[in-house]
Design a protein around this nucleic acid. Structure first.
Length: 340
DNA sequence: AATCCGTACAACCGCCTGGTT
DNA sequence: TAACCAGGCGGTTGTACGGAT
């Protein structure tokens, strides 16, 4: 009676995986590779959907997964990258070897986010909450925002350039394979151009960064050089990989001269600096160090927390520059997977 | 001992993207 | 060009667990 159940849907199992299921999945993938995830469950004898198998493998069973407590360095990396990339967990995960995006996401949502919130920092914007307008921290938070915008744009531009470069290479290869190509051969593949100024110029997002008045523009805001700022060369005089973001409000006295002299040196000897990034003081470490406990903010001689933060975080230009270089190296390392 | 509550994390769901037909 | 599919991604939920009451 009734129709045949030959086409009836097999009830797929949900919920936690059992040890037996794990073993079946592991054994199958070790022997055959995963192949098509959709067809895998039937072949492996699992009553799960392919998607569930894929998630179980990528987030739990894969042999190259590191589990357990996140190190301080990993925490710092997550916070820094989150400030730049937002909730792009897969992109963040490419810079944390052996950690999965799911694990990082969970760690952020259950720990780091709360820690930042407790400290009065908005985990979404990475800016201090309820800070009096016009305060030093507020200015520096704004500065961080500029940095983040630039860096995000840079990463996007890198990805775009990478894709275009690949397309060009493929096109050249195809042409060469069929007819004699009139196209010039592709340039030797250099690391993706980091000159966000040039890249941004080439996009529809912004027409220019440096106008004739020395105004520096980002997609959402404008930075102005102070009157006593050294004259700024045109974009074309920068070497690739150079991003120079000088902000009047960012140069808070200490190290200002040093910063400008370094910029000057950078202009005059661009070949010596092709991997550098020079920026103003950023706010990022203000909570970064505190969150990770690398700096005891209370041990300073200053009276207020704000001063402690200022001093501990923004007092040394070299440190700040190194921080950004470190971060740049992190996100641009050719040995790592691309962010996008 | 029972219950409540917060935390951590595995897993699911819905949407998006890129490739193929 | 549209439809379909596989895989990837991020948001959210479900559940186990431990500590507090």
């Amino acid at each position: 009676m009734g129709r045949s159940n030959s086409h009836a849907k097999v009830e797929l199992k949900k919920g936690p995986w059992t040890r037996e299921e794990d073993q079946k999945l592991l054994a199958y993938i070790e022997e055959h590779g995963h192949g098509s995830w959709r067809s895998l469950p039937a072949k492996a004898g699992l009553q799960r959907c392919g998607k569930s198998c894929r998630l179980r493998w990528t987030n739990y069973l894969r042999p190259d997964i590191k589990r357990g407590k996140f190190s301080t360095q990993e925490e710092k990396t997550i916070i820094r990258l989150h400030a730049l990339l937002g909730n792009r967990w897969s992109a963040i995960a490419t810079h944390l070897p052996k950690r999965t995006d799911n694990e990082i996401k969970n760690y952020w949502n259950t720990r780091l986010k709360k820690r930042l919130t407790r400290m009065g920092i908005d985990p979404t914007t990475h800016k201090p909450k309820n800070n009096p307008s016009g305060s030093t921290l507020s200015k520096q938070a704004a500065n961080l925002s500029h940095m983040a915008q630039w860096e995000t744009a840079r990463l996007e531009a890198e990805a775009r350039l990478g894709r275009e470069s690949k397309l060009l290479s493929n096109l050249h290869f195809l042409r060469k394979a069929t007819v004699q190509s009139p196209l010039p051969p592709p340039q030797p593949t250099a690391p993706p151009c980091l000159d966000v100024l040039k890249v941004w110029q080439a996009t529809s997002r912004a027409n220019c960064f440096f106008g004739s008045t020395g105004t520096l523009q980002s997609p959402t805001s404008t930075l102005n050089f102070s009157d006593n700022t050294p004259s700024v060369p045109t974009v074309s005089s920068f070497m690739a990989n150079d991003v120079i973001a000088l902000d009047n409000s960012a140069a808070y006295g200490v190290g200002k001269e040093k910063m400008y002299s370094e910029v000057k040196d950078k202009m005059e000897n661009p070949m010596h600096h092709h991997d550098d990034i020079i920026i103003g003081y950023s706010t990022m470490d203000a909570y970064d160090y505190d969150v990770t406990g690398s700096v005891d903010l209370t041990s300073d001689n200053h009276n207020s927390d704000v001063h402690n933060v200022d001093s501990a975080v923004f007092g040394d230009f070299e440190e700040t520059k190194n921080y950004w270089n470190e971060l740049l190296n992190l996100v641009t390392s050719p040995l790592e997977s691309p962010v996008f």
